[in-house]
Design a protein around this nucleic acid. Sequence first.
DNA 1: AAATAATCTACTAAATCGATAGGATAAAAG
DNA 2: CTTTTATCCTATCGATTTAGTAGATTATTT
Lengths: 136, 136
Amino acid sequence: MLSKKTKYGLKALAYLASQRDNNPVQIAEIAKQENISQKFLESILLTLRKTGFLGSKKGKGGGYYLIKKPSEILMTDVMRILEGPIAMVPCVSLNFYEKCSDCPDENACSVNKLMLQVRDANLEVYRNNTLADILV
Amino acid sequence: MLSKKTKYGLKALAYLASQRDNNPVQIAEIAKQENISQKFLESILLTLRKTGFLGSKKGKGGGYYLIKKPSEILMTDVMRILEGPIAMVPCVSLNFYEKCSDCPDENACSVNKLMLQVRDANLEVYRNNTLADILV
DNA sequence: AAATAATCTACTAAATCGATAGGATAAAAG
DNA sequence: CTTTTATCCTATCGATTTAGTAGATTATTT
C-alpha cells in the first residue's frame, strides 16, 4: 500500500507544478484544495524542502514553491524520499541493499528471483515519469 | 515492503515445488530448511490450504503438498492471497476497487495516473510468472 | 492405545502510521 | 518597533498491523 505520506506528497507536488507561475503557495491552500490534514502536510512539505525538491518563504506572501522544473523531477527520486526503497525486499534494492538474514544464497532464492523482476518493472515506470508527466 | 508472511509463503511453495515427488512434507521440515519460525509458518500454510493451493494430511507421514502443478500456480493469485491487492492504491485496483475519499475525480488525479502504470507493470510480472518459473 | 502432525483459538510485544499540539523562528506590513 | 503571517521544529498519541508465541484439539497411522 502507498502511504498517505507519499500520496499527499505527490498531490502537493502536482498542485505546485500546475500553478500558473512559480510563486510561493501556502500549506493551508494546498491542504484545503487537496483535502489533506494541514498539520500532516506540513511535515511532508518540510521533508520535501530538506531533500531539495521545494523552496520555502516565511511570512506574508510566503509558502512553498518548486525548485526545479516539473520535467526535471523524477519519480524515482520522489518515491525514494517519500515511500522509501523501491524494491520490496532489501536483497534486491539498488540504493538500500541488505542481505537477508534467513537466506544463505540469494541466487538460490525464489523470492529474490521474483522480486528482481518486480523491482525492474517498477523502476522502469518511475524512471519514465517526471512530475510533468503525471499532471492531468 | 514485502511482508514476512508473503516471503515465507513463497519460500514454502517453492520448497514444495522442488520436491522430487508430491508426497506430504511436514511443517517442521520446511521451517527448518527455510529458516522460518515454525508456528508462524503453520498459520501461513493453513491459509494456503484454505485458499486451494495446498492439500494436507494429518498424522504420521502427513504434511502439506501442492494441489496443482507448479506451472499452473500463477503469481498473481499467490500474491493476492498472501500480500493482498497488487495495486498500491484502492482506486486503481482491479480486484479490490474502492474510491478514494479525498479525491473528487480520479481522472484528474496525478497519483491515480502514476499508480495505474505501476499496477500494470506489476501485473505484467506476476502474470508472466508461475511457481515453476521462479524455481532456482 | 500411543504417537504423530495438522488445526484452531487466543494472546502479545513491537513497530509503524496518520495525525495533533504547541511553541519557536523568520519575514513582511503597519 | 510591534503585529501579523506563515514556516519550522519537537514531542506526543491512538489505532492498526506485523511477526510471533502458547496451548489445547482433532484426525491419522502404527
